[in-house]
Design a protein around this nucleic acid. Sequence first.
DNA 1: AGCACGCCGACT
DNA 2: GTCGGCGTGCTC
Length: 815
Amino acid sequence: MKFADVILPLALPKNYTYAVPDHMLDTLKVGSRVAVPLGRQKKYAGVVKAIHELAPPDYKTKPLLDLLDKDPVVYPTQLSFWEWLASYYMCSEGEVLNAALPAHLKLSSETVLLFNDAYGDDFTDLSDDEYMIAEALHIRKELRIEEVQLILDKSEVYSVIKKLIEKQVLLVYEELKEVYKEKKENYVQLHARYEAEEELANLFNTLGKAPKQMELLLAYLHLVKTQGSVLQSELLKKSGASAAQLKGLVDKEIVWIEKRVVDRVPGGGKVDVQIDFTLSPAQDKALREIRTGFEQKPVTLLHGVTSSGKTQLYIKLIEEYIASGKQVLYLLPEIALTAQIVRRLQKHFGNKIGIYHSRFNNNERVEIWHKVKSGELRILLGARSSLLLPFLELGLIILDEEHDPSYKQQDPAPRYHARDAAIYYAGLFKAKVLLGSATPSLESYFNASQGKYGLVELSERFGGLEMPEIEIVDVKKAQAEKQMQENFSPQLIQAIHSTIAQGKQVILFQNRRGYAPFMMCTTCGWIPTCKNCDVSLTYHRYQDQLTCHYCGTRYPYVHTCAACGSQSLVTKSFGTEKIETDLQELFPKARIARMDMDAVRNKDSHNKMIQLLENQEIDILVGTQMVVKGLDFENVSLVGILSADNLLGFPDFRVNERAFQLMEQVSGRAGRKHGKGKVLIQAYRTQHPILHYVTIHDYKAMYAAEIAERQNFGYPPFFRLLKLTLKHKDQKVVEQAALVLANWLRPHIGPHLVGPAAPLVGRVRNYYLQEMMIKLPRDTKVIAQTKHLLKETFIKLLAEKQFRSVFIVPDVDYV
DNA sequence: AGCACGCCGACT
DNA sequence: GTCGGCGTGCTC
């Protein structure tokens, strides 16, 4: 008797064991999807994690229902990776599976209602609702729950269905649905017998009486000659004929239609467009250092200043690894995955490279999945989630912009850090990892300086380009002298003027979207807040409404103070929309665009805006974080940071590191080619040390100062951080739960526990929050013990009935 | 995550 | 009296 442990796509604490039916004994493989029953009637598709002969002692197993794959969807390597992710990041393997498998590989059961023919057609003793469903079923024979909801125009339909089952009008069964569909296209083919010249000539004669069909045939012959194959849709468009007329040709057996399975994700360009380039001596040296680094250590950090030509190094390395028969994964933060970088790589690697990011639809994801698994795709360029693809023979992972916080998944579980997970995943393949950044995370630079990672420095900009000149502008002073025009200092205005006059472009950075981060009543100080969250509402002038940036609720503009009734509400502070509006007044002739989450909400607008900037159809670009990443424009010579204080002001031990990274990265956008660029940073606190480090582009000085602080206060990289968030609709309950949890934990990990306390925003989407932080020493054993302790304590807490509905969210290596 | 079971308020 | 609301607990 054999048993299979199955990972189900649910947040179950453990995997379930099913009996392997005899007919599957030979065909069932680890990594395959299987259909399993769960509960009374549900079916799920899970993935087989292990096959063994250990009968579970305390329950009776149910049998697997179906084997869904001829070939497993993942290799054992991925199963090991999932297990590690689940245990390290404190979630279930089901949650990992959920994140890894494209939606279309995760079938779930659908309830299908069937008409019971034995019932006959006498519906007299049915209620109105029952009658409507019975009638519909009588005609259609089969209905889904969704359709029942539509017919009855309400969502709660179970009671009606239950009644109908009792009255034996209908039968229910569960159907597992495969959602992925191959894409097929219709190709038109000429019958073989007309290949011969004289047959074709005869055909022309006989078709004389059917001019439309003749036209079709001529268009077909033209397309065959020019393109080789003829798509039905294209033929119809070109000939202007109708589908019926084409059918005429099919009926006469002159042509036939072939349904071909086609790829949704085209391989991009041809392979032979490789453009050769030569590395600078500095790049060449760095490349050699990376290679020798990899001989001794699996991970190397490439610290290369902005514009030092890291991408070219990557391309050379990728070439080497694919030449040796390995696959390469190139990771970038989502918003850095622009058409610009994609084009650049496709130029070199043609259809050997695949792309994977969140804007792909589910069918496209399934195709990439299979191509990565089969090894057909040798290179994959993707965002965080592409780390979860089933690579066959991974040789190298490049993780560019390694300092980027978006590599850490926030919600939902698994809350993994792509950098750390990449290092583990690579280890399973004995593959190498190259981390790249102009401003490495303190963690990585620490690991490199400790000798844990190789370290390669590339401190020279490509082509002898100089680092931009940075000037700090004292806003307080300008304000005192009444020199500020809205949020622009005279220096910034002057710089923008002269930059535009020279036909160059400007990027302005402001880390807040919307028009004003909050509004306030000048009479009594009242501030409009969200009804679901404890935050002030941001005014969006473009839509003329107030928006909550935490839950997305929108409110109409407020004219009257809700507290004192006065009309004296004003907008406070400023976001990208206000900058854009004010700019347009200050520079009426300039072409201004705004790039933030609101402006690039729809699918392609981000790329379009980049295109405009590239074609120099925009003079000034205003944006949030978004302008920092993956933009590479030769003609931008001025960068302005509107308010450095915004970056330095919030209470987080990483502020300084983040602020430095952000400012240094934004600065890197300036003067990427002709001549030296200029960066203007407006600030109140002009003496802040971070501003000084940015001015002299001194990463190492920033690192030295910060690392000392981290050691003093016991923060990463000296300790690992585990954040616990408790959520509940009732503030009292969540506060108590947090206290109880902390009290239970304190005897074990007392000195390492900070909190509990409500976070800065204490309520989001009507859930009250409590947080606590656990500082874990860098000792694998202690970390594992603590996680075990936490899990046990969570179970204990949730066993208390008053805390049963408290959500506990552990976030390991909280960023 | 579903989904059934079970215990309290507003209707026939 | 019942319908139906959602809180709670189980699924191999």
